[in-house]
Design a protein around this nucleic acid. Structure first.
Ligand SMILES: [Mn+2]
Ligand SMILES: [Mn+2]
Ligand SMILES: [Zn+2]
Ligand SMILES: [Zn+2]
Lengths: 132, 132
DNA sequence: ACAGCTTTTTAGAATCATTATAAACTACCT
DNA sequence: AGGTAGTTTATAATGATTCTAAAAAGCTGT
C-alpha cells in the first residue's frame, strides 16, 4: 500500500480508515484547503463505506501533529487545514470566503526584528485579505 | 460623555451599554486582545450592573464594522479581537497560548508580488508562532 | 412632557464545530 | 490463536456564537 509505510513510520497504525483519509488528502494532483467536515463529506462521496466524523477529526489532528497537514491562521470559528505543508502564505477573499495560496516566492522576505526572550520562531505566516 | 459623540457619529445610538463597553475597551492605557466572553466578564467586574452577553456580541461586531476593533487572524475556534486597530502584527506563544503585539516597525516591509484580477488588498497581517 | 416610531437590549433557545466517552473492534506481537 | 494496546464508533457533552421575539430605551416632532 502507498501510505502504510508513511503511517507506520510515524507511529500510526495503517488502518483502513487512515489509508482512506490519506488517499483523499494526498492523492490529489493539487494541494487544497479544507475543514474537517468538508473532508469527511469528500471521503463519503469517494468510497462507499462510512467513516465516523470522530475518526476524521482524530486522524486530521494526528496528521497535523506529524506535520502532514497544517492549520491556516484565519479569523473564523471553523478551523481550516492545508495539505500544502510547505512554507507559504494566503490570500483570503472576503467576498467569496475563499483561501488562495501565495507561494513563498510571491511574498518578499519577511524580517522579524523583535525577539522574545527564550522563545524561538516556529513559523511566520501572512494572511492577505482581499476585497473588490 | 466621552464616547457619545463617537458612537453617534457612526450611527450608533449612545446607549448606556455601549458607553460602558467603550469604557472597558478604550479607557485603558494599553491596547489589548480579547474574546467576547473575556470582555463580558471584565465589564461585569468593573460595573455592578449586568450587560447581556448578546449585547456584548452585537456591540463588538458593530464596533468592528466601524473600524473601532479588529479581529486577529489565528487558528482557533474562538475569535480574538484587538483594540489596537493600527497596522501591526502578532506573535503567538504556543506554550502560554498568548498573543503579543509586533509593531509595524518590528517587521520589515512586506512585498506581495502576486495580484488577483479585480481584487484589492484590504490588509496584510503576519502571525509569528513561538515555541520554547 | 408625551405620543409614535425605530433601534436596542435581553433571556433564552438554537445552531454548529469540536471534543469527550466508553464500548466494540482491529492490528500487532508472541 | 490469545493477549494487549491502539483505534473506531455512535452518541453525548461542551462551548462559542447567532437567532428570536418580546420588553425596554432612545429619538423626533408636537
Ligand atoms: Mn494550499
Ligand atoms: Mn494589540
Ligand atoms: Zn495554503
Ligand atoms: Zn494586536
Amino acid at each position: 500500500m502507498k501510505y502504510t509505510e508513511k503511517l507506520r513510520n510515524s507511529g500510526l497504525r495503517p488502518t483502513k480508515q487512515r489509508v482512506q483519509i490519506c488517499n483523499a488528502l494526498f492523492d490529489e494532483k493539487k494541494t487544497f484547503h479544507f475543514t474537517v467536515k468538508d473532508l469527511a463529506k469528500k471521503i463519503q462521496n469517494k468510497i462507499n463505506s462510512h467513516i465516523s466524523l470522530a475518526t476524521v477529526y482524530n486522524t486530521v489532528h494526528a496528521f497535523e501533529k506529524k506535520g502532514y497537514l497544517k492549520q491556516i491562521p484565519i479569523n473564523s470559528n471553523k478551523i481550516y487545514f492545508d495539505t500544502n505543508v510547505s512554507e507559504h502564505h494566503h490570500f483570503y477573499d472576503l467576498d467569496k470566503n475563499k483561501l488562495i495560496d501565495l507561494n513563498k516566492c510571491d511574498v518578499g522576505p519577511i524580517n522579524i526584528k523583535k525577539k522574545i526572550n527564550g522563545k524561538k520562531i516556529k513559523s511566520v505566516e501572512v494572511l492577505v485579505k482581499l476585497e473588490n
